[in-house]
Amino acid sequence: MKLIARLILVMILTYFLSFYMPWWIVFVVTFLTGFIIHGSGINVFIGTFLGAGLVWMLYAWYLDYNTASILSQKVIQLFPFDDPMMLIITSGLVGGLCGGFGGLSGNSFRQLFLKKKQKSFYS
């Protein structure tokens, strides 16, 4: 349940804040999401990776579709592949990695403030 909540929160905040803030707002959003909605490390990474990656990939596809691939054809010349869809997937992967590591950092920062349980002799 926390995974879905984290995913939806990251998607909504990243989408709306990216209109007014720079591209790195995805780090701030996922850091705060990882800090507030805690979980295991892999769970936080997957939720924030998917949330940020899907937003970046869907928005790149939307821009590519509405501009009839004009910008994609210009940018694709910089990369070793010829398909504009690979550019969209690469954009989603970069956004996902930024989001995943931001969320993992927020979760790890939260761990600094938690009190460690002392192990019992009998456990």
Rank of each mutant, 00 (worst) to 15 (best):
H38I: 10
I70V: 13
P80C: 03
L93F: 15
K115C: 03
S123L: 09
F113T: 01
V10L: 02
I12L: 04
T67I: 11
T67W: 13
F19S: 06
K2L: 11
V29N: 00
S69D: 15
A5Q: 11
L71G: 10
S91E: 10
P84W: 04
S108H: 13
V28H: 00
I8V: 09
F113N: 05
S40D: 15
G102C: 03
D83P: 04
T67P: 10
F109C: 09
K119N: 14
Y62P: 06
L3K: 14
F16N: 01
L7Q: 06
F81K: 00
V75L: 10
L71D: 14
L93G: 07
S91M: 12
G100R: 01
G100Y: 02
T30I: 05
L112V: 07
S69Y: 13
T90P: 11
Q111K: 13
L71K: 07
F19L: 06
F19K: 04
G51L: 05
Q73F: 13
S72W: 07
M1D: 08
M57I: 06
I70W: 11
I89H: 04
A60Y: 05
N107R: 09
D64V: 08
I42K: 12
I89M: 02
L54S: 02
V44A: 04
D82M: 07
L7M: 08
V44E: 01
M21A: 13
F27I: 04
Q118I: 14
F16D: 05
H38Y: 09
T67L: 11
F101V: 04
I88S: 00
W24R: 08
K115L: 06
I25Q: 06
S120P: 08
L13G: 01
Q77H: 13
I25A: 06
V26R: 07
L71A: 12
S108G: 12
V55P: 01
S108D: 11
L13N: 04
F19W: 07
G92I: 01
I70C: 08
H38G: 15
L58F: 07
K2T: 08
G47S: 08
V94K: 03
M21Y: 12
I89T: 03
G41F: 09
S105D: 08
L114W: 14
I46D: 05
P22C: 03
I88N: 02
G106Q: 00
S105Y: 12
D83M: 08
V28W: 02
L114I: 14
V94I: 09
M85C: 12
A60F: 10
F27D: 02
M85Y: 14
I37H: 01
F27N: 00
Y122W: 14
S69N: 14
G95K: 04
S91V: 12
F16Q: 01
Y62Q: 11
L112G: 06
I4Q: 04
V28N: 00
W56H: 07
L9K: 06
D83N: 11
I8T: 03
Y122C: 11
G106P: 08
S72H: 04
L112M: 12
G41K: 08
A60K: 09
F81T: 00
